[in-house]
Amino acid sequence: MSHGADTAELASAPSGPFHEATAAENNKLGIWVWLASDCALFAALIATYLTLHNSVQHAPTAAQLFDLRLTATATFVLLLSSMSMGIGVEALQRNDVPGMRRWLWLTVALGAVFVGMQAFEFTTYWHHGLTLSASDFGASFYTLVGFHGLHVSFGVAWILSLLIFSYRRPITAADAWRFEAASLYWYFVDVVWVVIFTVVYLMGKVG
């Protein structure tokens, strides 16, 4: 009752010398696993928001508060930062370190502007009475959008640390993955924002 092969038939050697996985390859896979896992993180936050966003109690509603012009501007800022990040990493590929630095500084600046706009937005809403404990719409909104804001802030810190690194040490080919990893994370944060922009702001405005 034997199917498949006897163990002996399976024995065969791989062709060519063995290439050990490099730190770069491991790190890149690691980053992707982390990003996949982060999807589930935001999924839980969005699920919370979807469950509770109609629970407004006596606090202001999404339709009353949201200013789409502000949010659309923030969206474009983040979108531009993705582009500058991409061009920066590409400059590094051409060994153009000063060019890379210029674009990364721009990315950091755009990221900081985004975080600043969010801080402004949050304080505005807060003054209009949408506090954490005022309603579950407020609680789930601040938690979801704030979590994304924390992601952006962490990304800004990460890119900043890369910039500092680039001034203190010559960048070798073996370091390039550090920049690629940060860029993947940065694009991912932008991807999440597209979801939040659609689900929270656009859908919230139409109710």
């Binding site: 063995f18 050990e20 996985a21 490099t22 770069a24 979108l79 582009m83 590094l92 590929q93 993955w177």
Partner: peptide
């Protein structure tokens, strides 16, 4: 297997041009 050529940054990315085009589309 893990066996493929080591590439510090993935070879393809389409150039600066592509980044601008994609950004335009996204906008």
């Amino acid at each position: 297997t893990a066996g493929h050529a080591p590439a510090p940054v993935s070879g393809h990315s389409g150039g600066q041009h592509l980044h601008l085009v994609v950004a335009g589309l996204l906008a």
